[in-house]
């Protein structure tokens, strides 16, 4: 690994013979990017997530069959829960290729895993996005206003944190009605306190800085100071926590579907396992495929999150 420090502003880069290679001024975005690409775990995480995002976006083109279509009338002589049939491993030419096999309803498991990626990843992003926006607002107000407002808001957050998150999410989804929208809401609500705490800490840390006082003296509005002067301090920890949080959200969606509070008619990885988990001993492939899909997506977000944390941490950077 080359040992240059791109954080020095406008530092020229030298080659082996001491010649100047470039005098490009340092840019925040480029430095951040090189920092991230230097983290092995972040790169592996990005690769895994790239694959899954591609699959989720082009799910309709990638899925070889309709995920709700029964193969029963279509493929003659097909058995339910048929094990995987892969051309490379000698699947006969007169059979359809089902690389993850069939489930109990004669549906193609691979197509279901592909389509299922949309809901799992999509809800994960949406839930965390919403939690960050609400959490950041609560944290910013609590940290900037302080006093009693701070106390009340943070005690509210403590109440949410006092429940084991899955239990609270189950109760919330049951209370609101078990559809995907409410699942997203529930996962979002249980993760708001984490983001509120992060932002509050950053705001309290930055509140007394001279540049904030200067902005105030110049007559900038409170909202302006919060959004333009203080919040940028909170962005790095929010990005790191948000990345890890999407992984957690994917796990929680799967868990909610597995215990059955998400309608089983939706194709999600968790509900695929919930429907079939009694067939574990007779047809393990039906459970293994969505199970591994969840594991890899979460692994991707975890690796990327860890990598981002290391890349952003100036103490570890040198």
């Amino acid at each position: 690994m080359t040992d240059h420090h791109p954080t020095h502003p406008a530092a020229p880069e030298y080659g082996d013979a001491g010649e100047i290679l470039s005098t490009r001024p340092a840019s925040l975005w480029r430095d951040t990017l090189t920092g991230i690409l230097r983290q092995r775990s972040a790169v592996v995480g990005l690769l895994i997530l790239g694959v899954f995002l591609f699959v989720a976006v082009f799910a309709d083109q990638i899925a070889p069959f309709d995920p709700r279509e029964s193969m029963l009338g279509i493929e003659p002589g097909i058995q339910k829960q048929a094990p995987p049939c892969i051309r490379l491993l000698g699947c006969p030419a007169d059979r359809f290729e089902h690389i993850f096999g069939l489930d109990t309803n004669f549906q193609d498991v691979f197509s279901r895993v592909v389509i299922g990626s949309r809901i799992s990843i999509g809800i994960g992003f949406a839930a965390v996005g919403m939690a960050i926006v609400i959490g950041a607002a609560i944290g910013a107000i609590a940290g900037y206003v302080g006093g009693r407002t701070d106390n009340i808001l943070m005690r509210l957050m403590d109440i949410v944190l006092a429940f084991p998150s899955l239990l609270l999410a189950i109760v919330i989804v049951s209370a609101l009605g078990s559809n995907l929208m409410n699942t997203m809401l529930a996962i979002s609500i249980v993760s708001i306190p984490v983001y509120a705490r992060i932002v509050r800490a950053s705001v309290i840390g930055a509140r007394e800085n001279d540049y904030v006082t200067a902005s105030r003296a110049l007559g900038e509005s409170t909202t302006g100071i919060l959004v333009r002067r203080i919040m940028p301090n909170a962005i790095t920890p929010l990005i790191v926590q948000g990345t890890l949080g999407i992984g957690t959200a994917v796990l929680e969606i799967a868990a909610l579907a597995f215990v059955g509070v998400v309608s089983l008619s939706e194709i999600t990885w968790g509900s695929m396992i919930a429907i079939e988990f009694q067939r574990l001993f007779t047809a393990p492939h039906i459970i293994l495929a969505p199970g591994l899909a969840i594991t890899f997506v979460v692994l991707g977000f975890n690796l990327l999150g860890d990598g981002l944390r290391d890349a952003f941490d100036p103490r570890l950077n040198r």
Binding site: G247, I273, L280, I294, T295, F296, V298
Partner: peptide, 22 residues
């Protein structure tokens, strides 16, 4: 450890059942 934190509890549980009980 990285794979361990990423795997849902119930998937690991089912895998363990498959290996140790079947």
């Amino acid at each position: 450890a990285n794979i361990g934190v990423s795997m849902p509890v119930f998937v690991l549980g089912l895998l363990l059942q498959f290996v140790f009980a079947l």
